[in-house]
Design a protein around this nucleic acid. Structure first.
Lengths: 155, 155
DNA sequence: CTCAGTGCAAAGGATTTGCATGCCG
DNA sequence: CGGCATGCAAATCCTTTGCACTGAG
């Protein structure tokens, strides 16, 4: 699911951080490992739960630096938390499936026909409004299997 | 741009509020008028700027009640604020154009071919994951005409 | 040594809530 | 009168920031 092989991933991140005089330290690498192995966007609490040695403020600070350096994206879906994921050019272009009930977000990849139709349509809107398009976001919203069968909600 | 005629709009809202023992008061009507005439999602400060007689806490409270009653939607796009708009079934299905520079959000309607392709693709994802789809969200992200020509940012 | 990184505690800021008062039916 | 609505002020909660300390080169 990654466009970048594991080793290249760390090399590339090292490079992007170095460009900004940032070091790829143990805790920063831990953040990357957590996000990479999750394969879906995580909230800060979820990140911290994955590695109890991480300090909250440093995690927030590092994720902010990552986002500036193009290593991660920050996503706003609900009021509770923001979500963090590896930057798309380190993984691959994808969209999100959002469960309204438990808040879980998963990745999904759209068919290439949908993507090309999307691009075509978006370019049209862009042209007619003088808008310089840099990207798009597509979310599927509903209720996940767990929440349906559980007749309730749980993470 | 509205699927509901102005008068019907207020009637329908009155009904939805009445179902929850809520009154359609002057300030609530003012909120609706502001959102309806904006034709795009607004932040709370933008709403308050449109009518200085509105109290912040009441506006937040009423928009929360509106959202529960299916009269408005609340949208999360950036860290600064949430955005509010009339519920889609009171206007019409649409998507958003988001300017990264000034934060402005505008509505746009996708072509019916794109929408049907979207639906088809989303249904496929839904089927393969046991996810009960209730809606989708599509945002165009970039830089708006104003911010481009202004070589800077402004609201 | 120098400068970036870390973590604790405090601050910040959008949003929510408590509470006393106002108003409609 | 009874119950919803309102607005001020205080409280919340996620996130950011200040600061002193640690660590890598």
């Amino acid at each position: 699911m990654a466009a970048t092989a594991p080793d290249d991933l760390h090399d590339e991140i090292t490079r992007r951080l170095a460009d900004r005089n940032l070091r790829y330290t143990r805790s920063r690498r831990a953040l990357v490992e957590i996000l990479a192995s999750a394969g879906r966007p995580l909230t800060l609490p979820q990140v911290l739960d994955s590695d109890r040695t991480l300090a909250q403020s440093s995690a927030y600070r590092n994720l902010a630096e990552f986002t500036d350096a193009g290593v991660t994206n920050r996503i706003f879906i609900d009021e509770e938390h923001s979500y963090f994921e590896l930057a798309e050019d380190l993984t691959s272009h994808h969209h999100h499936v959002v469960c309204n009930s438990c808040g879980r977000i998963d990745d999904f990849t759209a068919s290439s026909s949908l993507e090309s139709e999307l691009h075509r349509a978006l370019r049209t809107v862009s042209n007619s409004t003088g808008f310089a398009l840099t990207g798009h976001r597509l979310d599927l919203v509903g209720r996940c299997g767990n929440c349906i069968t559980g007749i309730g909600d749980s993470a």
